[in-house]
Nucleic acid binder design. Structure first.
Lengths: 194, 194
DNA sequence: AATTATTATGCAACACATTGTTGGATATTT
DNA sequence: AAATATCCAACAATGTGTTGCATAATAATT
């Protein structure tokens, strides 16, 4: 029974914030429960009232993000004028980039990208009428999503040198013409493969 | 001074093998020095004669792989008949898949994919005469390499349902026609985006 | 409204596991 | 037989997860 909900929510939020402050700079194996609670100003054992361990905390942050993206995607896919799904993904990344860029980065969680793919893939395949059981389609989506997430991460982490709209334009042409198509268009010819 | 080189090499190799046996099944935070040395049949402190810590061991495995790929790539790029660079990458993944699929997977190392990209990107950009300083080109390569590595990982981890040659054919068409191009070709029309 | 009873929230302290290091035993080469 | 490379036992320090208790906030009673 929760007697003081605001206080409990506040404590949990404080612990999560302290964790994130550390996680932005250090990889998870360097983050001890002590460091989190010291930074947040609690006793170490208080941590265990809210989380099983540090990985549980991280998972809760990830689940919150995935849930948020799910709602966003369902909203956008139900909208028939969905040609700009790439824009919406870029916009979502921009809004939540502080978290996503860390989780998808060098010190991030390799399982997180799979959680994202597992959410996005079936929704998008259904919307595009592509069979989920067919192997070629799976490869196609692994390639496209893997590429998009890599590029999004690079874009965000390198100071967002272009707007999310411009970014989406590049993505669309990559998806429609292929990387080699875009490169060829740009150079006239590709040295390697004439 | 190394007095007994074979023995030392053997011990190091035993420790690395034991680590890898554990790493295939468990994520790195669950792997203690004790578990490695127990499995390999050494005292725990022997470990520290060879490695700084568990992460140092992992890094040495990664460095070995990166070095191997580097030699392979330089060999292939110097060869003028390099239209089949995608085949060679698929073949390399197949040969070293036991390691690569784990490192690139859910319990793998998120830093490893960046090590690979940092190696491949400049070599390939040079070969294709694309400026490394231009932002658009960076995004293009992040997308392509991120996509390829995702797809390779999926292909290998799901039982290699097709040959590496067939896989390379799919990759080539994705790179040349784009994901949407391939999907459109396949379906006639895409529901979402007519 | 004032006081007591209840219990949610946070903490101190315990037993245990893991880490990284130091100095010494033993086995192999010279 | 001498030298020392290789491996190991034991130590101090740090982190983990749990148990039982203090206190402060709500609920119940008068």
């Amino acid at each position: 029974m929760v007697k003081n909900p605001e206080r409990k929510a506040q404590t949990k939020s404080n612990l999560m914030d302290s964790f994130w402050t550390l996680y932005k700079k250090h990889s998870i194996e360097d983050i001890s429960v002590i460091k989190i609670t010291e930074l947040a100003g609690y006793n170490r054992s208080t941590f265990y009232e809210y989380f099983m361990d540090v990985y549980d905390l991280l998972n809760q942050i990830e689940s919150n993000l995935v849930e948020k993206l799910k709602l966003e995607m369902i909203k956008n896919l139900s909208n028939p004028a969905a040609t700009d799904i790439v824009d919406r993904m870029a916009a979502f990344f921009e809004e939540n980039g502080e978290y996503l860029s860390v989780l998808l980065g060098s010190k991030g969680d390799p399982a997180f990208v799979n959680k994202l793919k597992a959410l996005i893939k079936p929704l998008l395949m259904k919307a595009m009428c592509l069979s989920e059981t067919e192997f070629d389609n799976q490869i196609l989506f692994e390639f496209s999503l893997g590429g998009m997430l890599s590029a999004l991460s690079y874009w965000y982490s390198n100071g967002k040198l272009i707007s999310s709209g411009e970014y989406a334009t590049i993505m669309r042409s990559l998806l429609m013409k292929g990387s080699l198509g875009v490169a060829r268009e740009k150079m006239g010819v590709i040295c390697l493969n004439p």
